[in-house]
């Protein structure tokens, strides 16, 4: 049975790269010409916080998850990632089922995996009681291809890949995800009144 990890990793490399990189013994193939991909995001899952005192507010659990090198444009993926920010997980998964974009499938699968991870590894009691605290997109590996132009010229074709990162946090989602929220009419009135009252009238008492 062929289940060597390094070997399985090797199977995924493009053929051309491999021919350049002929020595495929174990140690040499531990280094990959494609890089190791994003390392920092999952490292947040390893951080251990100090024990809380009984009077302290319960620290919400969180779980970081990622999917790397999805064959999709990072610029298109951004719309999907931004859409689900600040939603509860179940709502986000439900919404993503109706997004007719190729990347929505990967995002949904990542969310489902993260939900499962939270219960199994991160001491979360109810996976539905989580919300999408962070949802980001990164640029993955770009393969360059060629395209013939007239007069012995050529054009570059770029095959983009993207990374998707998500952080789920325990609890219910906040009312507003972004900081600069448009103010309520009552708040605006209050602000205007404040401004009016704090005017300085020159040459008055």
């Amino acid at each position: 049975m062929i289940n060597n990890l390094v070997f399985r990793k090797l199977l995924n490399y493009p053929l051309l790269e491999q021919i350049n990189h002929l020595h495929t013994t174990r140690i040499l193939s531990a280094w990959s010409p494609l890089g190791d991909g994003p390392q920092k995001w999952l490292a947040y899952n390893k951080k251990i916080y100090p024990p809380q005192e009984p009077h302290e507010e319960r620290r919400p659990a969180f779980v970081c998850h990622q999917r790397t090198n999805i064959k999709y444009s990072p610029w298109k993926m951004w719309y999907i990632a931004s859409m689900i920010r600040g939603m509860s997980v179940d709502e986000a998964i439900k919404q993503l089922k109706f997004v007719l974009k190729k990347g929505a499938k990967d995002v949904r699968e990542t969310l489902e995996e993260a939900k499962e991870m939270a219960v199994k590894e991160h001491n979360v009691e109810f996976p539905s009681n989580m919300w999408v605290a962070e949802s980001l997109v990164g640029k993955g590996i770009v393969f360059k291809g060629m395209r013939r132009h007239a007069r012995r010229r050529m054009g570059k074709v770029e095959y983009f890949h993207c990374h998707y990162f998500v952080r789920l946090e325990e609890g219910s989602p906040p009312k507003h995800y972004y900081q600069n929220v448009p103010k309520e009419p009552s708040e605006k009135l209050e602000e205007w009144l404040q401004q009016m009252r704090s005017r300085k009238i020159i040459n008055s008492l």
Binding site: M1, I2, R8, L11, N12, Y13, P14, L15, R67, T68, N69, I70, K71, D106, F143, G145, M146, R147, R148, H149, V157, Y159, H161
Partner: peptide
């Protein structure tokens, strides 16, 4: 015909699901 085809690797392919013959 102007575009030279590039065979892209399948990064998210689950290699555990591949049969012996496919490998």
């Amino acid at each position: 015909l102007k575009v030279i085809k590039v065979k892209l690797p399948k990064f998210n392919e689950n290699t555990d699901d591949l049969t012996e013959e496919e490998i």
